[in-house]
Design a protein around this nucleic acid. Structure first.
Lengths: 358, 358
DNA sequence: TTGATAATTTAAAGCGTTTCGAAATTGCTT
DNA sequence: AAGCAATTTCGAAACGCTTTAAATTATCAA
């Protein structure tokens, strides 16, 4: 790699000391305007850029942010948290940070083998944790007194700064929409209640029913699936339809399960939405490409990642200790699977799918 | 952040010099077995981990790999290159590297504003470039004599080490499959021929026709779309069907265009595959969730990312200068859109979509 | 035992920054 | 013009590691 100029070269070229250059570099006071200008000029002439590693050594700051997500959520092709990750990437660039991604397994223990390497190597200035992880991992990071922001997760044991989805509002909107469409037999399918977001959605369902004056019906609730993947949605719906009373509408805790749900309904010859309406949650890419297009609650995944970075950078720079919680608003996307729209609108679809190319 | 032990602590604890510890750390020779063991033991007892930044300063190696992809390919929700990126992440972890991601715009120039920051800050040991970028950017990186591997791209001006898709084999398989199904009127839709992969696919189409003794028919080829997104597929198919002679099968240069193609065909009441068969390329997530499920050529996107990292790490460590080209094999996934399978198989689908969850 | 040679260990000089406290310069007052 | 304070600049020590040349210790043949 071609040798690049160092701070010393700048010092020589300006006939100033290294210290002064450093002061300018870091926007510190006690530098005369004339000097500052001259230094900046020479820096630009020389094409000088401070060496990240050296900076890190001296300042104890790496310029990196660590992003932790569980294997479960991520290693398998995982659109939801991937989007959040991309959001952090984009925002981080604006703040001159890089994001180091790592996944963690189910079992965290303090043996260093399961500790993210960037923590051991002191290679990050702050941490973003996305989705559910072991509380012991949070404890460990906390013990390092590293700034940390949780995204789509919150621990029951301790409050942390977090960026959350307004799950209840989303479910309320979904249920209200179904009620407006004339539904009273509204079922819920879900799984993995240990994830706070899922739990909230289930809770929101109960509340929303009550609010709409609909009695809670055990036969309409299947939330004990182990996971929330497509096949869980399929299975849950199958179990739902094994009961004597059938729902006219189904709310799935996420789009993946909604996809499985629709697949099952089709397999037994049900028409959607005329026989059964289906509503999902998350608004993943695919929901707009299905037939029928899926009515769902849109979650601003990238935006959540961005907010997490903004908050984290604040914490790093300002040494801001305050624990804050942000609820990112959601939006109900009414599409065909709930009977909300009559005609497919191809131009609108085209606009929404712009992102898919080679 | 809690103070962690340094190499000096290890030196003190073993009554050895810092240098010796360093030798052990880097697996250098000239250390007695007894000493090595003792050092390793103390390192583990103390929970010592070398500081990445300090290491980088002294050794001139950052432990990072830079990943460059164009904005066009990536900023919009982009499953293809995202997958490649994830592949690099996973493989990099195994080699103790981190991957720094950055996107670049259309116009690259040597003004530092458009140069990826990690290059200016000497914060990467090697570069992976995914997809098409400006050749001038490749030149620039080359001038830094930084190891570089291209993924799904190759410059016409200079040979670089690259991981490529076997596009021709994929198209040949697709065309042969269609011919086997009895098709002779096989159309091609595509766009953005400046991307080598796309160009190869188009070329492969022509070759494959010839090989199967089918005459090339201008009316069956629409490859002048500006892009290769869903709406381009829609438009291209519309233009295709404006001609007097209609094809019985359509090959799209990628799945996104195939999706648009199918959307158009449905809009004019065509049945797939009985009226028109459709085959895509890439095997993106969505292709298995469509109706009908899309026959397509599977590209091992993650695998390509992994191979790129393996090759790059070789180049970094071995100072291996050899320029090599790897063609990653492809596989035709026969599904319903080409009439290749009669019945949807739900269990198989479930298995394939495991990845989609909350 | 001795000397020579090989094997092992170490001291010291960086690597490119930041960050002090100290030194130098400047600007005001009188 | 001298004295003092405020402003600006600088010297030098860290930061935690790698690396090279030199120093030390071990080994072995004579």
């Amino acid at each position: 790699m071609k040798k690049q100029p160092t701070i010393e070269d700048v010092a020589n070229a300006t006939s100033l000391s290294i210290s002064t250059i450093s002061l300018v570099l870091n926007d510190k006071p006690h530098v005369s305007e004339r000097t500052r200008r001259k230094v900046l000029q020479v820096i630009s002439d020389l094409g000088y850029h401070p060496h990240r590693g050296a900076r890190g050594l001296a300042s104890k700051l790496s310029g990196n942010i660590g992003f932790i997500v569980s294997n479960d959520h991520f290693t398998q092709v995982e659109p939801f948290y991937t989007k959040i990750f991309l959001g952090t990437e984009f925002e981080a660039r604006d703040h001159d940070y890089y994001v180091l991604l790592t996944t963690v397994g189910k079992s965290f223990n303090k043996k260093s083998s399961s500790i993210p390497r960037f923590l051991l190597e002191r290679n990050v200035d702050g941490i973003i944790v996305a989705g559910k992880v072991q509380d012991s991992l949070l404890d460990y990071i906390d013990s390092l007194s590293l700034p940390m922001v949780l995204v789509d997760y919150s621990s029951t044991k301790k409050r942390y700064t977090s960026i959350l989805i307004d799950n209840k509002a989303g479910v309320h909107a979904a249920v209200s929409h179904l009620v407006t469409q004339g539904h009273r037999q509204i079922a819920l399918i879900g799984g993995d209640l240990s994830h706070p977001s899922i739990a909230e959605r289930c809770l929101g369902y109960t509340e929303a029913l009550a609010e709409n004056g609909i009695a809670y019906e055990t036969a309409f609730v299947v939330t004990d699936e182990k996971d929330t993947r497509v096949h869980n949605g399929y299975d849950a719906t199958e179990r739902l339809f094994a009961h004597r009373v059938k729902p006219t509408a189904i709310l799935a805790v996420n789009d993946a399960m909604a996809i499985g749900c629709i697949r099952y309904l089709k397999s037994i010859g049900k028409l959607i939405p005329s026989d059964v309406a289906v509503v999902g949650f998350d608004d993943i890419e695919m929901s707009v490409h299905m037939e029928p297009r899926l009515t769902t609650v849109k979650v601003l995944k990238e935006e959540m990642g961005k907010q997490a970075v903004r908050r984290l950078v604040d914490m790093i720079k300002m040494k801001d200790e305050a624990i804050t919680t942000v609820q990112v608003p959601v939006e109900l996307m009414v599409r065909e699977s709930s009977g909300g729209v009559s005609e497919p609108v191809d131009s609108a679809i085209a606009a929404q799918t712009e992102g898919i190319s080679l």
